[in-house]
Nucleic acid binder design. Sequence first.
DNA 1: ATAATTTATGAAACGCGTTTCAAAGCAAGA
DNA 2: TCTTGCTTTGAAACGCGTTTCATAAATTAT
Lengths: 320, 320
Amino acid sequence: MANIKDVAKMAGVSVTTVSRVLNDYPYVSAEKAEAVRKAMEECNYQRNINAVHLSKGKTFLVGVVVPFSNHPYFGLLIDGIANAALTHNYKLVLIQTNYEEEKEIEALTMLKNKQIDALIICSRICDWKAIKDFTQYGPIVLCEDAREKEVSCTFVDHYKSFSIALDYLHKKGHSRIGYCIGRKSGTNSKQRHSAYVNFLKENSLSFHSDFIFSGCFNFEDGVKVVTEFVQMKERPTALLVTSDQVAAGILTCCKEQGIFIPEDLAIMGFDNQPISKVMHITTLEIPLVEVGRKLFHQAMDGERVTHEEIPVKLIERETV
Amino acid sequence: MANIKDVAKMAGVSVTTVSRVLNDYPYVSAEKAEAVRKAMEECNYQRNINAVHLSKGKTFLVGVVVPFSNHPYFGLLIDGIANAALTHNYKLVLIQTNYEEEKEIEALTMLKNKQIDALIICSRICDWKAIKDFTQYGPIVLCEDAREKEVSCTFVDHYKSFSIALDYLHKKGHSRIGYCIGRKSGTNSKQRHSAYVNFLKENSLSFHSDFIFSGCFNFEDGVKVVTEFVQMKERPTALLVTSDQVAAGILTCCKEQGIFIPEDLAIMGFDNQPISKVMHITTLEIPLVEVGRKLFHQAMDGERVTHEEIPVKLIERETV
DNA sequence: ATAATTTATGAAACGCGTTTCAAAGCAAGA
DNA sequence: TCTTGCTTTGAAACGCGTTTCATAAATTAT
């Protein structure tokens, strides 16, 4: 395969001139530019992108860390990131971690390596300390409340939004409220939990540890929740479900079991995924595609550290 | 930042020796190896991966072309690819095309550029001709029946599987069968359609163009189908739905409309996604994660062109 | 007409790790 | 003792495009 030298020779110019043509720099005469273009065509020249990357110290790749890629939450997020990347001629390197810390470190190392220009971490298991060490190597942006930290982030104030949801349920007459969550650790989960605990305290409600269902990620996890629910002696009357998928699963399962929604159990979803509309699930809208887009822009604007809060919106439908 | 030269100088050896240590080559004395390791640590040396890529002509990146990443079908496929990639120390470059041909060409160009070592195309809109021109630049593998073509593929024989499903419905007494599909063009869709047409012919059944519902990708698309369905004068009694998501949407919507499944309408899904189990949808299992894994392995084994057919399995549940 | 710019062009250095090739040292076998 | 065959080690070439710097030519300004 021909390289820039060959093209230069063929066109009777220097490699510098070829490079100038290649990159649309000025100060090349029309004739020489033409000669170069002709030579490139003749030998089917293709620029070796790795040489460009080495030379420029830039790859036009952005790493995206997600635990799973087949989950609608991350799917939508990736969608937003991917579409923003598309318009900026960046490509995404998908790093699926399955929540293994090792994989997250690998992603961070890619940044250190200069294999990617920036890194977007959609969800993590690793310590902030681990990340901090890598901030010097390039922009890292988080999808969580990192206002206290020296990296950019786009986030939902989950404390606030959980409080809103809890108050809403409380106003509707519920005092036995539980919630379903993916994993218990994680910045977002912790914020939610403290909102929950504070809500109980402020309203003098008692804490039931079995009102908290963890491990809820997908539609099918709704089955587990309902199975547990029916076996409970003291049941909650309302459930905050941090994913519409899970809420939909719970709904479906409850119908089978003859549990009426919202009479027997009120359900409040999160995200406002399309499925929640179809199933008339009351939910808290989080514009994930927009979050994704913002994350990408922050990754691009690596110099500036910004913290963007995304407002959520309560969407009333028929499950509360 | 220190480079290999600096390390060599610090350790009092040549760059070659450093390179040998870096790559675990034999023929380095223990003392020198130790000196190199110490030097690397001292200056926090990090190998510039782009230089490696340039030198090796290899990037350990595999491109994955998908139209959307937030769809469970592609989610599962990506999952399989990603996990296989993980174990082989490859990373994925996600190219979300939204079915724009231009983006597909861009992905192919990345292969030509040597920016990726191989390309997996999960679904495409572009012509085979367009792809053919790029096969010379590296392994391209397709997720469709490409037995006639000189690229590797992992595929489901959609003609066969559609026939199986149609026969099953027919044996259950249905003669007014329709189907729901994502897009009408596309290799898979065409295979399915011809299976459908042949089935009708062989059983002397008449063709109703309105029994075919296209644009069915997601859960929410089920709504459209049901809306159309209830307005039909002559309704099908069974529907083959090429995605469990859509089948689930149809099911949910039918329940609302008082349409009984399977009495009023039999539904047969595809993929055997978790949702189909929860909702007891009879479906045709396609092991997408395994398909993904195979696609990756074929991409790795670029030399050999193989065509792997994936068998499907009918899973009887309660919607037929 | 002369100075000051602007335009055009190429040599060479740079980014950096890998690999080939030659050479030297040393041990085992003949 | 001599040959053969590892084991070690490093110089130099290689992969290839970008960028800096110097030079020369052509304009424009004074």
